[in-house]
Computed example of a mutant assay.
Amino acid sequence: MSVNVSYADEAAIRDHYQHMLDCWGDSVAYAECFTPEADYIIADGMIEHGWKEIVDGHNIIFSAWARNSRLIGRIESIRFITDDVALLIARGHIEYLDNRSSDGNKRTVYSLVAQRFEGRWLFAAYQNTPLAGH
Rank of each mutant, 00 (worst) to 15 (best):
G73I: 03
G25N: 09
V55Q: 05
W24C: 05
V109D: 05
K106Q: 09
H134T: 14
F80I: 02
D84V: 10
Q127C: 07
F117Y: 15
R107D: 00
P36N: 09
E53F: 09
I47V: 15
E76S: 13
A132C: 06
I47K: 14
D103S: 15
V85E: 00
A125L: 06
A124R: 08
S101D: 12
I42L: 07
S6C: 06
I41Y: 13
R91W: 05
Y7F: 13
A90Y: 13
W121P: 00
R67T: 11
I94Y: 05
W121H: 00
N59F: 08
I60E: 10
N59M: 05
S101L: 04
R100I: 06
H49G: 04
Y30G: 02
G45R: 05
H58R: 02
C23N: 14
N128K: 02
D98Q: 09
L131D: 06
S101K: 09
N68P: 06
H93Q: 09
S111A: 13
Y40L: 01
I61T: 13
N59S: 08
E118P: 03
V5T: 15
Y17L: 01
T35M: 01
I72Y: 10
S69V: 04
Y40P: 01
K52D: 12
R91M: 06
D9L: 04
N59D: 14
D103N: 14
Y40H: 14
H93A: 11
E37H: 13
A64T: 15
S69F: 05
I13M: 01
Y110F: 15
D26G: 12
Y7H: 12
Y96A: 06
K106V: 04
N128S: 10
T108Y: 12
R74G: 12
Q18C: 08
G50L: 01
W121Q: 00
D15S: 15
G92T: 10
L112M: 08
C23Q: 15
A38W: 10
I89L: 14
I54D: 00
S63W: 05
I94S: 04
E48L: 15
I60H: 12
G92I: 08
C23V: 10
S102L: 08
G25M: 05
D44C: 11
K106I: 02
S69H: 06
A124I: 06
A64E: 08
I81R: 09
D56L: 08
F80Q: 00
Y126K: 02
A11T: 14
I60L: 08
N105G: 12
Q127A: 10
S102F: 12
G133P: 01
S69E: 02
F123N: 00
A11H: 14
A43Q: 11
S102Q: 09
A124P: 04
G119I: 03
F123Y: 07
G73N: 11
D15I: 09
D39Q: 15
Y30L: 05
V28A: 11
T35F: 03
L71F: 13
G45L: 01
E48D: 08
I61N: 05
E76H: 14
V109L: 10
A31I: 02
I61P: 04
Y7R: 11
H16N: 10
L71T: 02
Y126S: 02
L88S: 07
A132H: 11
H93C: 09
D39K: 15
R107W: 02
A90G: 08
R67F: 02
V113R: 03
S6R: 04
G73K: 04
F123P: 01
E48S: 14
V28L: 07
S77F: 03
